[in-house]
Amino acid sequence: MIQGNSLSTKIGKFIIYFIVISLGLICLLPLWNIVAISFSSGSAVAANIVGLTPINFSTKAYEMIMEDAQFWRSFFISVQRVVLALALNLILIVLMAYPLSKTKREFKSRNIYMNIIIFAMLFSGGLIPTYIVIKNLNLLDTIWVLVLPGAVPIFSVILIMNFFVGVPKSLEEAAIIDGASPLQILFKVYIPVSLPALATVALFSIVGNWNDFMTGLIYMSQISNYPIMTYIQSLTIDIAELVKSGTSSEALQNIAEVQNRNLNAAKIVVSTIPLLLIYPFLQKYFVTGIVVGSVKE
């Protein structure tokens, strides 16, 4: 690429930078506001005067979280869940997508399997039948209920399958000539060139599992088994709704203690940190493993 030095390119660059930076700020400022709120005093937050800097700096909200044993119990349940789900998801996605990426000539019943998968993706059993199945499998209140029902994310399978289909045939043929077995082809050829796609589905899996609160809400009967987002959700009650529905004074008082925007902001910050930490690690896979240049037509 040729870099121009004329005035017009400079202005153009300036405008582009300006747009990109302001878009970045638009994304960043609300998050920063949450961080500022979490470090402000409760009354300043209630008075709506916190902007981008904390007012009456206070770490009380974080202290309250630190003391909350259930918060940490739930936090670790979520960590376990993400680790388990990520491992299971990746294994099952790859093992499923690889055969399905073959043509009908190579894998005769491919279309039957494909139809079953797509059917299952479009139609589900509904809440209560699913609940009864899970209950009869004795999965209620175990960590597996958070992991197993979503162990094969169909959408990701199709994504990876399509990625595999796009891998040049010549790569596989070369491996076959070298005497590689199908498993070796999968692990030595397909997976290394598919890292960007795998990183994407891994990210889906991590974010999806970390942020999901519904599963925990339905299948966990004890609060001590709640994953973090379910726990945070259970603490996040709209006090205005409670006031409307006529809740007792003691209950309101109790809720007002844990239910203020200050504390909620701190919970959001703490529960977002793990995801923020994971992004940089996955990011490097987004640029490597590109197929470009591996085959010369």
Partner: peptide, 29 residues
């Protein structure tokens, strides 16, 4: 080549074991 794929299968098994060990931490009512 062959040892490599065995290694991978081992890794898979270890991962599965690890996950079940982790899972045992959540109590059941």
């Amino acid at each position: 080549m062959k040892t490599d794929s065995i290694k991978r299968i081992k890794l898979l098994l270890v991962l599965l074991l690890l996950t079940s060990a982790l899972a045992a931490c959540v109590q059941k009512s």
